[in-house]
Amino acid sequence: MDYNLNHLKELEAESIYVIREVAAEFQNPAILFSGGKDSILLTHLARKAFFPAKIPFPLVHIDTGHNFEETITFRDELVEEIGARLIVGSVQDAINAGRSTEEKGINASRNGLQTLTLLETIEANKIDAAMGGARRDEEKARAKERFFSHRDEFGQWDPKNQRPELWNIFNARKGFGEHFRVFPISNWTELDVWQYIHMEGIKLPNLYFSHKRSVFLRDDVWYAETEFMERKDSEVLVDKIVRFRTIGDATCTGATLSEAGTLEEIIQEVASSRVTERGGRSDDKRSETAMEDRKKAGYF
């Protein structure tokens, strides 16, 4: 008998271990659920971790109000199917109440406003460990994240003073008002995620598969036509066959021209792709350290 796991089963075992450690060490954990493939994967792994019991903590969705409709439908069906509790933190509510101010102009996005609503939702629900589907291969600043990432009472990340993380022993101790962000799928790559989704038959929103959509070009990125985005006169709507490699707020998530309509085709496409999946994210393009700056302030 050969006692050897392939790399996907080893990643799965590691993630399940991390999720269980969170459930055991914290009073009030939650999964930050965006409707994207990574948080769907995370939710799937959480189901596995507690089977045959239900996931013993809620899903939290930070809703910018600028969603693709498919994401919300998918979210509601998933929550129903697994019998989980859903908490929605609304950016629109924060704007209405005057706690957040909309960005102005053509590149206006609510991406930055999510941070405030996220921190408010964490505080209001007394969440002491917020699990996210971030991966270290996504972006330079994420490469330095710990599995258990400590946040001070202002929700800030201090990248130069992170706790050392040794072996697989996670230090979950914290002071009053502080919380943790935990990233159980830290070690997965984009290709690992797709292969695993295929292997496990995990359902995804249709946005990930190629479809015809009305889009326009801005700064070399194709954006979907939505009511939330203003277009310049030069930005003409055209119909293209596209799919999304990441799903975030509709105003900052670019579409990829792609014919990949099945998981097999997507895997082929990702494996031969020469551009990172966040290459279509205008939120990362604002500066070379855009992600680090947002993370320090408490972003996902």
Binding site: R136, D137, K140, A141, A143, K144, P159, K160, Q162, S186, N187, T189, L191, E288, T289, E292, D293
Partner: peptide, 23 residues
Amino acid sequence: LTDGLRAEREQGITIDVAYRYFS
């Protein structure tokens, strides 16, 4: 490619463990 944090880019050194993936 591997120097991710702002301070590292400024000083041209690596100051924290960074994880990289390839296959």
